[in-house]
Nucleic acid binder design. Sequence first.
DNA 1: ACGCTGATGAAG
DNA 2: TTCATCAGCGTT
Length: 186
Amino acid sequence: MSDKILSQHFYKKNTLEIAKKLLGCFLVRRLDGRTVKARIIETEAYIGQDDLACHASKGRTKRTEIMFGPPGYWYAYMIYGMYHCLNVITEKKGFPAAVLIRAVDPVKSNKDHGASFNGADGPGKLCRDLKIDRLLNGAKAYTRESGLWITQGEPVAADKIAASKRIGVDYAGEWKNRLWRFTVKK
DNA sequence: ACGCTGATGAAG
DNA sequence: TTCATCAGCGTT
């Protein structure tokens, strides 16, 4: 089966590398008897306490606690009072870092052909459409228990990956200029 | 360019 | 306890 779930070990390394390797992988959501599969096409890296765009730059707080924990866990939070963002924790325990999943393409499965999921081109829309909220915060991304996990995909070649500045972090001083956003070229 | 909306963290 | 801010989105 090509439905191999990415292991916890997969997430325990360099965040930039993981952000790129997640491109082409599949985000899988279990929703009331239905399974929706979507191809990850856009990610962003948030790395450590020095990165002013990273929530963990505030230090260890109730909200950022999950980022300081072991890799392979979901970090889901509410933003702007009406949307949610989905991240997966990376690096070893104690080093706060995560990859934000920003956009996905729909996948035609043989089970539910004519699928109702059309993909999502932003982190808020992605969470809205896949019914992801704070209840998933702290759940595991490397098992099916939580109803949300990631499976292996066809790796995207380096020359098919574009790096650009992260979105919505103009407040982050020099850190806003880091090319830590990754997209799959058309 | 703006308003929506409520969680978050810093200030008092 | 208040207050400004925010890893977004849809409309003007």
